[in-house]
């Protein structure tokens, strides 16, 4: 018996979402297998990617594998970061500090600055921390990013109300003990996913010390109150 859906598929006016005519970006793997599987290969190479997160939970560090693989001749722009970013940290992240631009201005001009950076074709990735991005502005950025093959990472707080935007990828990073629990709200030509666990550690901790103490300290001596 023929698959009943195959007859429907043969109709010229019917097409599947994955086979649409819109140009699909190539994807770069993030390095976390569970996430890459859900994202059909990884983060798209161009377009606006929104990361809803809580500040200070490792939102930029987890993109480190992605940034290390990119070619380094073009600029990386950081628009309105929440504080001062130092060059040695960027180097550890995988971004050449000589090719990084830090821009600090008010919210509305920050949106103009991002668009200028994207359109200039001098940047291959732009990280923006702006609030209140409207649908129209997001669409403009998406089109500009497509034209110049630029990745734009929009950082938004998890506590802000989620407004649906026309972006290539919409992720929420919920912090957990071992890393993140990622929710893919939507992605271009792909399904949404819930609660993808991502295990990663990006800061040093005292685990080794704790292990040593547990091994050699007597049970009666006062513990040093270290956790982790």
């Amino acid at each position: 018996m023929a698959n009943s859906l195959s007859i429907v598929e043969q109709h010229p006016a019917i097409w599947r979402g994955g086979n649409a005519n819109t140009p699909q970006p190539n994807r770069t793997p993030t390095g976390y297998a569970s996430l890459d599987h859900a994202l059909r290969g990884g983060i798209p190479n161009w377009g606006v990617i929104r990361l809803r997160h809580l500040p200070g939970t490792g939102e930029l560090s987890f993109l480190s594998a992605l940034l290390k693989n990119r070619k380094q001749t073009l600029h990386s722009a950081f628009v309105n970061p929440p504080g001062i970013i130092l060059a040695p940290w960027l180097k550890q992240l995988g971004v050449n500090p000589a090719h990084a631009l830090l821009i600090n201005t008010d919210n509305e001009l920050a949106k103009w600055a991002t668009e200028t950076c994207v359109r200039s074709s001098a940047c291959h990735v732009v990280f923006m921390w702006v609030t209140g991005l409207t649908v129209k502005q997001a669409r403009r950025l998406q089109v500009a990013a497509q034209n110049t093959q630029c990745q734009v990472f929009l950082f938004e707080s998890l506590t802000a109300a989620r407004r649906s935007l026309p972006v290539s990828l919409d992720l929420s990073l919920q912090p957990t003990e071992q890393g993140f629990s990622v929710e893919v709200h939507k992605q271009l030509a792909g399904w949404s996913h819930q609660q993808i666990p991502v295990y990663f550690g990006y800061t040093p901790n005292n685990n080794i010390l704790a292990k040593v103490f547990r091994l050699y300290a007597s049970p009666t001596s006062t513990s040093l109150n270290l956790q982790g």
Partner: peptide, 28 residues
Amino acid sequence: TGVFAKQQLIGKLTARLGESQVSKPMWP
């Protein structure tokens, strides 16, 4: 084109936003 585009971008940003608003990351 990369070199000119980068210089043009920096020029445009400093003209609109001001020179102190655009910087490169510094080393401690």
